[in-house]
Design a protein around this nucleic acid. Structure first.
Length: 216
DNA sequence: CATGGGATTGACT
DNA sequence: GTCAATCCCATGC
């Protein structure tokens, strides 16, 4: 069984280099998708030196009809059935690329949708990519389509390895080892709307709208 | 081969 | 609050 402990490897002074030396444990994604969705809060998504801390996720599983894999193996869904730890990137509403982490054993269609990031590195490049003038920092990655645009993630990244890139997910940093989390129902779906499979960092400005009711 | 429906966003009323 | 933009692909005739 995988744990969240990161492997201590030779350090580097630069933030990117230091994190490059750390990996999520082998088997991290080879677990129930709900566990992975919780544990990804606080981890870091990085692409081309641009990065952010994950503050919102949703879980999807082939056993429920909101999941693309519910219909079985098709051309669209084949990445979902790949080995855990791959990126599933698909186009939403004809416009946006959405990033997911494939979970559970090979042959089981399950993934965690990365819905929002707290910008970490490359904020100016994010602003340039997002294109709109004078965006506040919390508007850069506060939604699943926004964050892929900010990090330059496109459909070409579908099927890529999240340990080796080009899109990578790196372990939690010290400030995020035990994040306060809020559970709620998922956004923007019409089926299985009752499942509480959305996870947000509590009191974080980068969580997408509508924000969940934060724990009292 | 035609059709319809999105795991969304930004602009506008 | 409402609504259009726009592309991939699953489904059905």
């Amino acid at each position: 069984m995988a744990t969240l402990r990161t492997e201590a490897l030779p350090a580097d002074r630069s933030p990117i280099g230091r994190r490059s030396a750390e990996r999520l444990p082998a088997g991290f994604y080879d677990r129930p998708v709900l566990a992975v969705a919780r544990d990804l809060i606080g981890c870091v998504v990085e692409h081309g030196g641009i990065s952010g801390v994950i503050v919102e996720t949703e879980a999807y599983h082939e056993s429920e009809p909101a999941c693309h894999a519910y219909v079985g193996l098709t051309q669209r869904t084949e990445t979902l059935f790949d080995p855990p730890g791959r990126a599933y990137v698909y186009r939403s509403y004809g416009i946006h690329a959405l990033l997911n982490a494939v979970c559970e054993e090979e042959g089981v269609g399950a993934a965690v949708l990365i819905r929002a990031l707290e910008p970490l590195e490359g904020v100016e490049e994010m602003r340039a990519r997002r294109g709109m003038a004078e965006l506040r920092e919390e508007d850069l990655c506060s939604g699943p389509g926004k964050l892929t645009q900010a990090l330059g993630i496109e459909l070409a990244e579908n099927g890529g390895d999240l340990y080796d890139g080009p899109v990578r997910i790196l372990p939690r940093e010290s400030a995020w080892l035990e994040p306060d989390m809020v559970e709620s129902t998922r956004i923007g779906i019409t089926k299985a709307v009752e499942l509480p499979w959305r996870f947000c960092a509590a009191h974080n400005r980068n969580v997408s709208r509508p924000r969940p009711r934060t724990a009292a």
